[in-house]
Design a protein around this nucleic acid. Structure first.
Length: 116
DNA sequence: ATGGTGACGTCGG
DNA sequence: GCCGACGCCACCA
């Protein structure tokens, strides 16, 4: 008995799969993932999927931020500072919840995964 | 069923 | 470039 519908399960699974593919030291945004999944406007659902990813340790949710490179979801980590800590451990500089040089660290699945 | 909320993003002013 | 409004969809009271 699953608490989520089949459609959501598929969406969640895809999100997890993409997030797992994010290389260390790189980050992506909810919008990019949603776009890669074909539902650009469903970026919020990506965030919701990350919520469920809490159970799966294989999903580096800390590498997913908003399009601004801001750690908007850090508040959902335990403790909240864990997100920044993990990012800095991978060589990413974070100041005031803002990823430095974010644009250069962005990992766009649409581009990276289409290179075969 | 209805309304409010949210780890977002785009658009118009 | 900042701010407000809307869209999108799942969840919760």
């Amino acid at each position: 008995m699953i608490s989520i519908n089949d459609k959501n399960k598929d969406f969640f699974q895809k999100v997890f799969e993409v997030v797992k593919l994010i290389p260390e030291g790189r980050v992506t945004s909810y919008g990019l993932i949603a776009n890669y999944l074909g539902s650009k406007k469903s970026s919020r659902m990506v965030g919701w999927a990350m919520n469920a990813s809490h159970k799966l340790l294989d999903v580096p949710a800390h590498r997913v931020v908003n399009r601004n490179g801001l750690l908007t979801g850090k508040n959902h980590f335990q403790p909240p500072s864990k997100m920044q800590e993990l990012l800095e451990k991978e060589g990413i500089i974070v100041i005031e919840d803002q990823i430095q040089n974010f644009k250069d660290l962005v990992w766009d699945p649409m581009v990276e995964l289409s290179l075969d």
